[in-house]
């Protein structure tokens, strides 16, 4: 019988790479504590959306809740630079960055009484649009649905597109009817939402890779005996590596599924031009968040 039960809330469906990592984490913890620590995983946003979950981890009403910038990141504005467009070369690069910035994230998290157990990886986000995005010129005047945050708004504006905030459940109809011409997201999201049914084309602009963190409430974590704390940390590291090993395969699978559904996948040309256009935005955005953000951005850029 478990002596300690921890609740873990996430927003993704059971077959998403992040949820699979959550479950692997729970399994490893149960195994290595001989069932003394049980982690109950609640997916599909049943305990709340990312913002509510982040707040719940900070206030202690949920114990562990993986989330990104729309979740726990809201408490640490400077971390937003980690989601800037065209910041990472690829998944491997991102993993190297994670290792370098881990202490900075840990330090930031401490201020709100949470502790980061690890990183999850999502991306690269691309654009589903009615009109193919072959080159940067095709972004001109494109009414693109983006999340309602300055980073995404700035991203769209820097490319001369028109950012159009639309609530997530309405995106499909909004594109179908023409409130927006395009939307964006990581391959798994583009595939499961079926947004591609309305756009018929997906252009691989690969604009954003982003992290999700695995915050645990510090008070809960500190109350565990040292051996169990170590188990949690190590299990999270393994779950992190496991999730990273799934990302590329899952992306290919999602793209294949869309192709099978008759979607044209476009290899957008001149991504260096996109990156060049957004370089100034990266600096401006970091500057607007303050010195800590500028320093963090410099640190990320220094990783080869």
């Amino acid at each position: 019988q478990a002596e300690t039960t921890l609740t873990l809330g996430d927003i993704y469906a059971a077959d998403h790479s992040n949820t699979l990592a959550d479950k692997r984490f729970a399994e490893l913890v149960a195994e290595r504590t001989n069932g003394e620590v049980k982690i109950e995983v609640y997916g599909d946003a049943t305990l709340g959306n990312e913002r509510e979950l982040a707040e719940s981890v900070v206030s202690g009403s949920v114990d562990i809740a993986p989330s990104g910038m729309s979740g726990i990141g809201r408490f640490f504005p400077e971390l937003q630079v980690l989601e800037l467009p065209y910041l990472y070369k690829d998944l491997d690069h991102m993993q190297r960055v994670a290792a370098v910035i881990a202490p900075d994230v840990q330090e930031a998290f401490q201020a709100q009484g949470v502790r980061n157990l690890g990183f999850l990886y999502l991306g690269p986000r691309s654009i589903a649009s009615k009109k193919a995005i072959n080159t940067i010129e095709d972004m001109d005047g494109l009414r693109i649905r983006v999340p309602e945050s300055p980073l995404y708004i700035g991203f769209a504006k820097a490319l001369n597109a028109v950012p159009t905030p639309i609530p997530f459940p309405e995106v499909y109809s909004a594109i179908e009817t023409g409130v927006a011409d395009a939307t964006e997201g990581e391959p798994a999201t583009l595939s499961t939402t079926k947004w591609y049914e309305t756009t018929k084309s997906v252009s691989l602009t690969k604009h954003i890779w982003h992290f999700r963190f695995i915050p645990v409430n510090s008070a809960k974590f500190d109350a565990l005996p040292k051996e169990q704390q170590d188990v949690l940390v190590n299990a999270a590291a393994e779950a992190q590596a496991y999730q990273a090993s799934l990302v590329n395969d899952f992306n290919d699978k999602a793209l294949d599924e869309m192709k099978k559904a008759g979607v044209t996948i476009i290899e957008t040309q001149g991504l260096d031009k996109f990156a060049a256009r957004l370089a100034t935005f990266q600096d401006e955005f970091a500057a607007s968040l303050g010195d800590k953000a500028v320093a963090l951005l410099a640190k990320v850029r220094s990783v080869q």
């Binding site: 982040a54 504005p77 709100q112 309602e148 945050s149 300055p150």
Partner: peptide, 16 residues
């Protein structure tokens, strides 16, 4: 009141 204080560092997405 307690949660208002917990959420003081949390910034809204559009207007911060």
């Amino acid at each position: 009141w307690l949660m208002a204080r917990v959420n003081a560092p949390q910034l809204s997405s559009a207007l911060s």
